[in-house]
Every structure is written in structure tokens, then in C-alpha cells.
Design a protein around this nucleic acid. Structure first.
Length: 547
RNA sequence: GGGGCUGUAGCUCAGCUGGAUAGAGCAGCUGCCUCCUAAGCAGCAGGCCGCGCGUUCGAAUCGCGCCAGUCCCA
């Protein structure tokens, strides 16, 4: 990328000054200045150097500037600005090159090789299959899916996974609830379990099971349990599909029990002397590895804990050869992070392989009133309903405008009400406008010849050059997201790109009497089209041809 | 009591691996459609970047302390 090329140029200029020969570590930044008057790129090298060699930063800057060797010839001018910035201005020719490159790369524009050779497993959503997905799940679905798209674009060998919690107390209560609902349907006397799930969906699952398997299913305990949660899991998958989210793998917790993975992990931890007996229970020595206290693996009634299963699960992931495990967890699980990390250390694995994105929660609101989200009250707004109400595009985009670090107030009324003015439409509208111009060109029987046969030098308006500059940033955005796991930067960029395009659109007419100029502008339009399409595709948001 | 996250414009939020005049959307006000879609553009107004101290040539950004909100654990 261009940033590294500039870094090399500055580096060699610095070494030619011979000022920093005695300095061992010299790190400076290459950045895009906020204001145009400071050029296209800028470096603080002189400011960093000043205290190291006790010289005036302006003098150092001047010395560096004199030694800049622009072999590729894309620098128009270099300026020194107080207190010691070196600002570089690029020739327009350099930006014309960007157009050629984008057109050439097309849908590959934005691809990077930074992740090459790294196997990554991204686990997210992982909702218990005992009820429909709700708003909070939707946030992680959108964030996780887009993050996955970006990581793949950055050449990571990525797999996505949904951990299905189909074992344990929750499932038993859920099964008992479905059973009670089924019996009620058959007119039998029912004792609803304590803490029963009471939602409408419980009754519809019961109805569906009775319809497909007859009343006998009620008495077949294992069958009932499996069919019940699998029915719900299918619902979850359908909702995910609606949200345009798909997983490479659904990993069922029960397999860890069936394959004795949990037993194995426990005996191996005992052997390593990481686990110990206390009273009748078995504990893992997590406090030795940074957790605040030791945690129970097996209770005194001889049942293994959820934690034990989770250790086995993570071990399983590592055994599958992943170099990095990324988990997206809701912030309410944050107390869990330390103990899972500790467990990984106890297993003798590298805890750095585990990266956990703790996503803050979503508060659902209707107007100014908070809406309680509980699976058991039965009164809950499902993700499915929500997609119907606001649309996938608006939903995904909205979720991706916020950093995972912020608690999100999601006001249904507001999102519905303002849907016309939602930022997603602003971005999509830019795409529709591009298509509209292309359509108009077609009507005029004006055929774009391809960048090789176009005189790009005709592009010299401010609105044109500025647009190219924004297009060029796309790769940096992909890089930043992949390295920092911050997919929300994509909407910030999408918005910037749309703004730049809308400005271009309002100032510059693409199709005109001047044929050569029209061709040049069609080249630019084409690259804007490619970039916007690629951005929207990473976001999982549709790119409409008209609106 | 301990911990995670947050505190930036009236509202919802970007920016936070330190940079030169702090941004967007919504809400408000003023202009702009005989011309590729006005779901747009241009402009106005709106900010002790929670508070204090520190580090630095330079702090919304880093460190420490405090205050507030939220969630988790006790």
C-alpha cells in the first residue's frame, strides 16, 4: 500500500541526512492530514526525531525534505509546516493510476494479503436453541457476518461457527415446557415446570411436534428433547438466513459429552495437576492463571459444569488447527473471560490465540420507554419480527454504525419512523444514482471504452480528484478493520464515500457533448461503482439499481 | 466492595496504536430541481470532547484520581 511506500521514501531520506545514525529505535507516523492544505500525506518524522537528537524539528524537517528521493515521480511538492510536519502533495497522475488499478481489480479491489496463512475461527451468536433470536443476537449476527466478510477479504483462512447449547438444564426446562404445551393441546392435565418458557413459540413447537410425530412423542423423552430443540434451531437458522447470515458450522455441545471430550479434558487436567478435588467437587486451578478464584469443573453430584464443556469446546477448536480463535460474546459474559483464558493456559496452550470481542448489550426501546427482553415472559420482540418491520438493510447497517464497545439504544419507533432518512438509504442512493447515469449513457448509445482507451488527464476538477482519493482509502479501511476487529468502520467509510460521490454528482455532469470527457468521467464513475458495490457487499447490504 | 464498557453538538453516535481549524446522521434555520433520480447539494446555527492532575513540542486520544450511567461478579 501507498503508506508503506511513503514510509520507505522518508526512511531513506532520514538515513541520508545521517542525523539519526546513533538512534536505535525510530518510529514515526505516515498519515493523511485532516485538512487538504496540509497535503495528501504527512509525516511527523522530524517531530519525533527532535528530542532524540536535541535539534530543532523545523531544521530536521528541512534536512529530510532535501533528501527525499522521489524515484517514482509521484510527488508534486513537499512542504514543511510548523512545528515540523513534512507534508507531501501528490501529482494528479498518481491518482489516475488508482483508477486503472481499481478497474483492473474490480470485485477484488480491497483484497489484502495480511491474513495469508492464518487459520481463524470466528464464533458468534451461539444462542441457546430454546427460543427465537432477539435484538441482541441480531447485533452480533450483523457484526460477526461483516467481520467475517472483511477477514476473508484480507485473506484470512476463516471459518465461522455457531455453538449450539443443546445440553443441560436450560434444554431440560425448555423440553418440559414444550411437553406441557403439547399436553395442554391434547386436553390433558398439566403441571407446568417452574421457570417454564411461556412464549407463543413454545406452543407452536408443541403443535408442530404433535402434527409430525403424533401424541406418542410426549412420552419419548430423548426424541422429544431432540426434536424440540432442533425445531427451534431451524427457526433460528431461518431468521439468520433472513438476516443474510450464514455459518460454516453448527457445533453441538452434546457431541462433547457423547465423545467423552469432557471426561478426557478433566483427566488430562488432573494429570497436569491443574485440577484438584475439594470435598466432593472437582475444581480447576484457574486462580493460578489470572482468574480471581478457582472454578468448579464437576459438582459434588458428579455433574460436569457448563465451564467444563466450554474448556472441551475450546480445546476442540485448537485441535482443529486454528491459529486464532475469535469469540464475540455479550458483555454480560465478561466475568467468563478470565476463567476461559486461565483454562487455556492450564491446557498448556497459548492464551493469545483466543481473542474475545465483548460486545455491549442492546437496549430495546419504544419511544422513550424501555422494552424488557426476556425469553420467559413470552412478550418479546424477535429478530424475525424486527427484520420484517425495518428491513434487513436498515437493520444491519444500523448495527454496524456503532462500535461493539458502546451500549446501543435501539428505538424501534425511531428506526421505523426515520427509515427514509436512515444513513443506509443515503449510501444506497449513491449506488442507485451511479446506475442511473450508466443507464442514461446506454440510452444515449454511449459505450464506455475501458480505462486503457480513455484520457484520464481530463479529470481535473476538485470533485473528481477528491472522489478518487476517497476510493483509494478503501484498502486501508479493510486493513484497519481486520487488524483491530472493528467492522463498524465500514459504515463510516461507506458514508464518506457516498458523501464524496453525491458532491461529485451535484457538481459534475458525467454525460456531456464532449465525448472524451464523458469517457474519462465514465472511467471514474465505474471505479466508484466498483468500490461502493464492494463496500455494500461486505456490509451485507443490497446495492439497488434504482430507488 | 471488585471488575468490563461508556460519558464528544438538543438526540443517536463516529473519531481514541497522541498531531496542525473535533466530525456524521437526525432535529432547527436559509438557499438550490427547463440539465445523468432533491432519499441530493450548498450554507447558517449548535461543543469548557464528564471533572481534576500528570506525561509530551503537542492530549478528545496516553497515565493516575474523582464523579455519573450501564452490565457482570461478590
Amino acid at each position: 500500500m501507498i503508506r508503506e511506500q511513503i514510509r520507505q521514501i522518508i526512511k531513506s531520506a532520514v538515513s541520508k541526512t545521517k542525523m539519526l545514525e546513533k538512534v536505535k529505535k525510530f518510529e514515526f507516523s505516515i498519515e493523511r492530514p485532516r485538512h487538504k492544505k496540509y497535503g495528501d500525506w504527512s509525516t511527523n518524522a522530524a517531530l519525533i526525531a527532535a528530542p532524540l537528537i536535541k535539534k530543532n524539528p523545523m531544521d530536521i524537517a528541512q534536512a529530510i525534505e532535501k533528501n527525499i528521493d522521489d524515484t517514482k515521480g509521484f510527488l508534486d511538492k513537499v512542504q514543511i509546516a510548523p512545528p515540523g510536519f513534512i507534508n507531501m502533495f501528490f501529482k494528479k497522475d498518481w491518482y489516475y493510476q488508482v483508477i486503472e488499478r481499481i478497474e483492473d481489480l474490480d470485485e477484488k479491489f480491497g483484497e489484502l494479503d495480511i491474513g495469508k496463512g492464518q487459520k481463524v475461527l470466528l464464533e458468534y451468536v451461539s444462542a441457546n436453541p430454546v427460543g427465537p433470536l432477539h435484538l441482541g443476537h441480531g447485533r452480533w449476527a450483523a457484526v460477526g457476518d461483516t467481520l467475517a466478510n472483511v477477514l476473508r477479504k484480507a485473506s484470512y483462512d476463516l471459518k465461522t461457527e455457531f455453538y449450539v447449547n443443546n445440553y443441560g438444564l436450560q434444554i431440560e426446562i425448555f423440553t418440559a415446557s414444550v411437553k406441557a404445551a403439547a399436553m395442554e393441546k391434547l386436553g390433558r392435565k398439566v403441571q407446568w415446570p417452574e421457570n417454564a418458557y411461556r412464549g407463543k413459540y413454545i406452543h407452536s413447537i408443541a403443535g408442530s411436534l404433535l402434527y409430525h410425530y403424533g401424541p406418542e412423542i410426549i412420552e419419548q423423552e430423548d426424541e422429544l428433547r431432540n426434536k424440540a430443540y432442533m425445531t427451534e434451531l431451524e427457526e433460528i437458522k431461518a431468521t439468520l438466513k433472513k438476516a443474510k447470515v450464514s455459518f460454516d458450522n453448527y457445533f453441538e455441545e452434546s457431541t462433547l459429552h457423547e465423545n467423552k471430550n469432557i471426561e478426557d479434558i478433566i483427566s488430562s487436567l488432573l494429570k497436569k495437576k491443574e485440577a484438584y478435588k475439594k470435598d466432593e467437587a472437582l475444581l480447576l486451578n484457574t486462580s493460578k492463571h489470572g482468574d480471581e478464584k478457582d472454578r468448579v469443573l464437576v459438582r459434588s453430584n458428579n455433574e460436569s459444569t457448563y465451564f467444563a464443556a466450554d474448556i472441551a469446546y475450546h480445546q476442540n477448536k485448537l485441535e482443529r488447527g486454528f491459529d486464532k480463535l475469535i469469540n464475540i460474546w455479550g458483555a454480560d459474559h465478561h466475568g467468563y473471560v478470565a476463567r476461559v483464558r486461565a483454562a487455556i493456559i492450564a491446557l498448556g496452550e497459548d492464551p493469545k490465540k483466543l481473542e474475545i470481542i465483548l460486545g455491549q448489550l442492546v437496549n430495546l426501546k419504544k419511544g422513550s420507554k424501555p422494552v424488557k427482553m426476556s425469553k420467559r415472559t413470552g412478550e418479546l420482540i424477535t429478530l424475525d419480527d424486527l427484520i420484517d418491520e425495518v428491513g434487513v438493510d436498515a437493520l444491519r447497517y444500523t448495527f454496524l454504525t456503532k462500535s461493539t464497545d458502546t451500549t446501543l439504544d435501539f428505538d424501534i419507533d425511531l428506526v421505523k419512523e426515520q427509515s427514509d432518512k436512515n444513513p443506509v438509504y443515503y449510501v444506497q442512493y449513491a449506488h442507485a444514482r451511479i446506475c442511473s447515469i450508466l443507464k442514461f449513457a446506454k440510452e444515449k448509445r454511449l459505450k464506455y471504452k475501458g480505462v486503457k482507451d480513455v484520457n484520464l488527464k481530463l479529470l481535473k476538477e476538485e470533485g473528481e480528484i477528491d472522489l478518487i482519493k476517497v476510493l483509494e482509502e478503501f484498502e486501508e479501511i479493510v486493513e484497519k478493520i481486520a487488524l483491530n476487529l472493528t467492522p463498524h468502520l465500514l459504515t463510516t467509510y461507506a458514508n464518506k464515500l457516498a458523501t464524496s460521490f453525491h458532491y461529485f454528482y451535484s457538481k459534475i455532469r458525467v454525460i456531456s457533448e464532449d465525448n472524451n470527457l464523458s469517457q474519462a468521467r465514465l472511467a471514474l464513475l465505474n471505479t466508484a461503482h466498483i468500490t461502493l458495490r464492494n463496500v455494500l457487499s461486505l456490509l451485507g447490504v443490497s446495492a439497488p439499481e434504482k430507488m
